[in-house]
């Protein structure tokens, strides 16, 4: 009985350890927020850089590259391949619609306003959408950690 109890305790210990490792660190959340917001605003910065007093620069590929760097850095530091080929945690399915709405919707509205030549409206919308996307990533991450702790 003791042996079985010890085995279950070990399973629990591994779940707690892995949940702690999956926890997104503050640097990642901050970097993701800045880079995702930058990616949303990149088209408006490219087409209206003179209006915002910015130099002409390939903002879209630069922020896309930065996003890859942030994701790769997290993967390298955590030793977990969660960004690209994660297993189907129930939280991912549970939050799939919300994630698609926040990430896709934010991009659609911000880039839509850019296409409609409304840069002053696109700017605050992009900032809010970037913040919401980061909050959604955090929410999904919390859900995944709950799944791990519950052994789902």
């Amino acid at each position: 009985m003791d042996e079985h109890k010890r085995a279950l305790d070990e399973v629990e210990r591994q779940r707690v350890a892995m949940a702690a490792r999956i926890h997104l660190p503050l640097w990642f959340r901050c970097a993701f927020c800045v880079v995702w917001t930058g990616l949303l605003l990149a088209p408006v910065l490219t087409s209206h850089h003179d209006r915002f007093g910015l130099p002409a620069f390939p903002y879209v590929p630069a922020f896309a590259l930065l996003l890859v760097v942030v994701l790769m850095s997290y993967r390298r530091r955590s030793g977990l391949n969660v960004a690209v080929r994660s297993r189907a945690y129930p939280a991912l399915r549970r939050h799939a619609v919300g994630t698609a709405a926040v990430m896709g919707g934010g991009a659609l509205v911000t880039w839509g306003l850019t296409v409609l030549d409304l840069p002053l409206q696109a700017l605050p919308v992009g900032l809010v959408a970037g913040g919401l996307a980061t909050a959604q990533v955090w929410r999904v991450n919390t859900g995944i950690r709950d799944d791990v702790l519950a052994g789902r």
Partner: peptide, 28 residues
């Protein structure tokens, strides 16, 4: 059933699709 294997399986089961060797080693 042996505890080290159970520990390793528990770490891999809780982790994402692929877990780095060093992570499994540190965790277990």
């Amino acid at each position: 059933h042996p505890l080290p294997r159970l520990s390793l399986c528990a770490a891999l089961a809780a982790g994402p699709e692929w877990v780095e060797f060093a992570v499994a080693r540190d965790s277990t």
